[in-house]
């Protein structure tokens, strides 16, 4: 959700440059709500670990998906890359018993390859990214299912990771906090650097603002788009790796919930659907908000369907306030002159 500057003679200024402010407010409201209903359990480590674990998985994917949305593109295929990656690890290192690093490297390679393909499709054919990545999603799903049945003879494959791998990707501190939370922090730091510190961030925002002008300004728009897709493929595959190592098994059907959840985290985090604007802190806050609702509902004793309604309402509120922010930023001019 975006912060909307009210009145003020100095105008929109710095405040509106911080769309995070609105996301933070949303987070506080939602947390307070579930803290009141959920009580001690939710406020204590059971609550924190449960929503942080959820946030970490979807958050690792939401970050690069957010970058893509800032650049004006969508990536639906993450929902198929995740199980494809899990199964790659399970088949190579579980079914065939090859070294685990080989399985992990191949899984990440699958993610990067699908991302590369997405990037090529979007930049070379002009097919809207929504459609192009739905296409690759079905393609990857079909291949995953086909190969898994062909090789393993079932839709689920098991693996017993060694202790080192387990502690790197699949352990839980105190039996509660998954290591994925630390990976998520790492991803957030790197992507924060990309978007807000390095000159690349400017290119990404320009790409989502106006592709033609960005290209005329000398930005390698096609290469940048392809790289962003490779990053989101990599992130989805990474979550696939942590999941297969955490659970010791991989299922063909896993992952589709990540598609909409990741997009919701990004939008709740204040990224404009039309691209051109967004922040990493916003995406992280949006992910936390989403995860708090998603898990808080179990602590609150409310009907689980209520959680979906809250998330739906949050999403609408976020889009409305993002649009208001956008409109205000543009309308501001008329008032001053």
């Amino acid at each position: 959700m975006a912060a909307v500057a009210t009145g003020g003679t100095g105008g929109l200024g710095r405040f509106a440059l911080r769309p995070e402010a609105g996301s933070f407010l949303g987070l506080i409201v939602v947390y307070t709500f579930f803290a009141i209903l959920g009580g001690q359990n939710f406020i204590g480590s059971p609550g924190w670990s449960s929503w942080l674990n959820t946030a970490a998985d979807v958050g690792i994917i939401a970050l690069p998906v957010g970058l893509l949305m800032i650049a004006g593109e969508l990536d639906i295929s993450v929902g198929a890359v995740l199980p494809a990656s899990s199964l790659t690890v399970a088949i190579i290192s579980g079914h065939f018993g090859l070294p685990i690093y080989l399985g992990i490297a191949s899984a990440l390679g699958v993610g990067i390859a699908v991302g590369f393909l997405n990037g090529l499709l979007v930049t070379q054919t002009g097919i809207p990214s929504l459609i192009a990545t739905i296409g690759t999603m079905f393609g990857v799903m079909g291949l995953t299912l086909g190969f898994t049945i062909l090789i393993a003879g079932s839709t689920g494959v098991f693996i017993t990771p060694d202790p080192l791998t387990k502690s790197l990707f699949g352990d839980a501190l105190g039996g509660m906090f998954q290591v994925a939370i630390f990976w998520w922090s790492g991803f957030a730091a790197v992507i924060y650097w990309l978007l807000h510190v390095s000159p690349w961030g400017n290119w990404i925002a320009a790409l989502g603002g106006d592709r033609v002008s960005a290209r005329n300004a000398g930005i390698p728009t096609q290469r940048l788009t392809i790289l962003l897709y490779m990053l989101s493929g990599f992130a989805a595959a990474f979550v696939g790796v942590t999941q297969v190592i955490t659970f010791g098994s991989a299922q063909v059907a896993a992952g589709s919930s990540f598609i909409f959840n990741a997009i919701m985290c990004v939008v709740i985090g204040g990224v404009l659907l039309t691209g051109g604007s967004g922040s990493v802190i916003g995406i992280v806050l949006g992910t936390m908000t989403f995860a708090i609702v998603n898990q808080g509902i179990f602590f609150s004793g409310l009907n689980p369907n209520f959680g979906s309604i809250v998330i739906g309402a949050l999403l609408l509120a976020a889009v409305l306030s993002n649009d208001t922010f956008h409109a205000l930023a543009l309308r501001h001019a008329a008032k001053r002159s």
Partner: peptide, 9 residues
Amino acid sequence: TFPLMSIGR
């Protein structure tokens, strides 16, 4: 052409 970017950027 980039209304949502800062002047400097």
